[in-house]
């Protein structure tokens, strides 16, 4: 069954449907959260929070407004970004240190799902962006920086960053269009 249908069943309290949905979305959710949050323990905690929120709030999904997967991943991304920002606010330096210590071991343990083709395509398409488009998009999406922070890091005016983000995403769409 597709995620969209499953989510509707989950909204009706169907735990079996949730198990199936878990199988479909837990990899992307965990992968995305881990990419943004980095710290393994926190990534797991945020992912669990997201998946539980999925169960609790499935009734809020409106199939008329986009796919279930994009709903789920948007929720996951929002939560991951919230976490990484509050962690940064709590102590930027400490966090960086923690990441350096935990990062490699965790990467070693983590098993990558067979998302090979999509992964390869995204990589290729990212490579085709201009450096500024790519950095603007990835610093925001993968590292959880606000566009103001991105502008600061890249020493660019705010307007330029907004445009690069937009162009970057549109270019990605053109490039990825064929493999959806």
């Amino acid at each position: 069954m597709e995620a969209d249908e499953l989510l509707v069943l989950v909204a009706g309290g169907d735990q079996k449907a949730f198990e199936e949905l878990y199988g479909l979305v837990s990899g992307p959710v965990f992968g995305l959260v881990r990419r943004v949050v980095r710290d393994p323990a926190q990534s797991e905690e945020v992912s669990q929070e997201v998946l539980l929120e999925l169960w609790r709030s499935a009734g809020r999904f409106d199939p008329g407004r986009g796919s279930a997967l994009s709903w789920v991943l948007t929720l996951a991304h929002r939560r991951a970004v919230d976490r990484v920002r509050s962690a940064r606010a709590a102590g930027e330096r400490e966090q960086r240190e923690a990441r350096r210590t935990h990062g490699p071991a965790f990467d070693h343990v983590a098993e990558e799902v067979e998302a090979g083709m999509e992964r390869e395509w995204v990589r290729r398409c990212l490579d085709r962006l201009t450096a500024l488009q790519r950095q603007s998009v990835t610093l925001a999406y993968y590292d959880g920086y606000t566009y103001r922070e991105v502008a600061e890091r890249l020493s660019l005016p705010l307007g330029t960053v907004k445009t690069r983000m937009r162009d970057g995403l549109t270019q990605l769409r053109k490039c990825l269009g064929g493999v959806a």
Partner: peptide, 18 residues
């Protein structure tokens, strides 16, 4: 909505078994 779908493509490529 369109831009969000694009952003979500970036998410898919990070899939990792929990």
């Amino acid at each position: 909505r369109a831009l969000t779908e694009d952003a979500v493509r970036l998410a898919w490529s990070t899939a990792t078994r929990p």
